[in-house]
Design a protein around this nucleic acid. Structure first.
Lengths: 154, 154
DNA sequence: CCTGAAAAATTATTCGC
DNA sequence: GCGAATAATTTTTCAGG
């Protein structure tokens, strides 16, 4: 599950995370190898599932999707079957960028991205409230993105 | 700030978010245009800052970085100058994947990715506690990633 | 603004060493 | 892992609708 990566592999990954379209020629130059082994290393890391894909990153600002809300959700039923149902339903909501089951205090923490507050209310009303076994929620609105990580499916 | 995007632009973005390395030939086929306008649209969206870059996405599991903790932080000083200092300092911590200033309840919410709990304690001790103006913190440990979004710099 | 196609440049892959 | 040859892709350009 945890493959051994040498310093060169790490350097390659680091470069590709920063720029997925970096030409292999340039990548090889930066890591101090020729193109052949660099291409082979990338392919191997793709095939072992370490690199899961390559994505374009979009600007939430330019898309008018700057409104971020964190949503604590407590469930009325926390048995395995209810959790599985909740998980499946939450994965189907495209506005939910992240969702983690949390230990202590509340059950789930969701990150929701929307166009504005009105859009968030719509998402709450149409989608969040339709999730199974929801007992209570608390919304925390982000005022400023200090460190942001987001890709959007549109 | 919010450019008008037609359905074709949205389709292009959607495809590139799913796969940043999709050849333009195939992309053109999928959106029903020839290569020329598709390439021009991509370049335009890059230049207007709508597409901010292309990233390889890595598997937290394969990298042994599955431990996610959310950290509420309250500051002792919430004047503009203190906030700016905090923001700058938190941006320098690579383990902080996300950080939002929050309205109501607490001041900041940080998402921290680490190798395991011991690693998280190290990050807390060495980096979080060195942040300026921190008054109090609460950590919430993720037990399961239901919807995850993450890229790692290594 | 798009199509279709050709030419030029760049990039990726293959293979002998 | 190297380096050269080969294959594929992207970029640019342009005439025409």
């Amino acid at each position: 599950m945890e493959p051994a990566l040498d310093a060169t592999d790490r350097k390659i990954l680091s470069e590709l995370v920063a720029n997925a379209r970096l030409p292999i020629t340039e990548l090889a130059r930066r890591v101090g190898l020729s193109k052949t082994p660099v291409a082979a290393r990338i392919k191997a890391m793709e095939e072992m599932g370490l690199i899961t894909g390559y994505r374009a990153i979009l600007s939430p600002l330019k898309l008018g999707m700057t409104h971020v809300t964190y949503l604590e959700v407590r469930l009325s039923d926390t048995r395995e079957r209810a959790l599985a149902a909740f998980n499946a339903a939450v994965r189907a909501i495209e506005e939910v960028e992240e969702c983690y089951m949390i230990a202590g205090g509340f059950d789930y923490l969701l990150k929701v991205r929307s166009r504005d507050m009105a859009d968030y209310r719509r998402i709450m009303g149409e989608k969040i409230s339709a999730l199974p076994h929801v007992h209570a929620t608390s919304s925390y609105v982000a005022m400023e993105a200090v460190v942001e990580q987001s890709w959007m499916s549109l």
